[in-house]
Amino acid sequence: MNWVFLWLRALGFSATVPGIPLIALACISLFVILPSCALIAYLDRKLSADLQARVGPCRTGYRGMLQPVADCVKLLQKNSMHSQTLGELLWMLLHTMALYASLAAIPLGSLAMMVDTQMSVFIPFWSALVLALGTMLLGLGQYTTPGWLGGIRTAAQSLAGTFPSLIGILCVGMHAGSFRWSALAASQGFLHWTMFAHPFLLLAFVVFVGGGLVLLAIAPLDGGLAMSDIHGGVAVHVTGRQLALFQFGRFYGFFIWSVMTVVLFMGAWRIPESLRSWFLALDAEVCISVVELTWLLLKTYVLMLFILWIARANPRARVDQITDFSWGVLGPLALVALVGTAFWTMV
């Protein structure tokens, strides 16, 4: 909780403010997660509009920059279309749980970290699983055929995606010698990324990202939410505020997976050592955390936009083909990466 004190001191408060963890959680969601969500939503709409020879949002604010805000406000003032079922309540509970459990363990820099245990990596991973479980329950709880099919597809996909991505994590853990965020970052440098350490780790990177897309059902692998055949699948009966929550949850899954990928494979938050020692000499630790966070988020956004770019250029894959691909291609590749990394680490 170091960093909260740092900031409090920098802003002129005494360090004895009660409810520090809550302040920290609120800060992360208000100043990191929500702006990221808005930014990626805007960039996605604007860049895909550029790709697709159209204009995209342009009315709200300068070049439509306030569009995500407008969307959110619109959804928030809407009521749900029908009364809530037990399944939906359960879903909302799981959703919130996944969200806040992993917020505490999300790695956003060497100083900005709340929980850093031996098993840090698995906390966001677990929350991705809970999100998938929640989505499945939401679909199954709707008592409609599209919702049912969407739920089943989500379940099948998350099962298929978990295996390779879990093994991808193991590869990195083996390489770094720990699953602690700080240790994972320490094993990398500003430009010395784990994914380029040796070919098997590059393979593990590909498997981890691919498995994550399958697990979280991110386009173009989002058969459970397909518009053309089951008109939205799980999301078909989710409206108003619930839809805002649902879409935010999906974004959060995507975001946290990208942050994990960056921390595990793409140099984490490491900035050049000279810059760091220069800041330390100036006694400006707040600056270090800001620069680290910026660098981490920048890489995360680039990765997310790259994935969105692929999604825009390709049709949606069929669910049975996705799961086949995940079990039949990503799974064996993950095992190859694991064995290769093991040998490489021993030698």
């Binding site: 790709l51 020879a53 159209r54 053309s228 825009r312 049709p315």
Partner: peptide, 16 residues
């Protein structure tokens, strides 16, 4: 056809 397989980009290209 493009819409049915969820390829939004090509829909826009073709309609243009």
């Amino acid at each position: 056809m493009a819409r049915s397989v969820g390829s939004e980009t090509i829909v826009h290209y073709v309609l243009r």
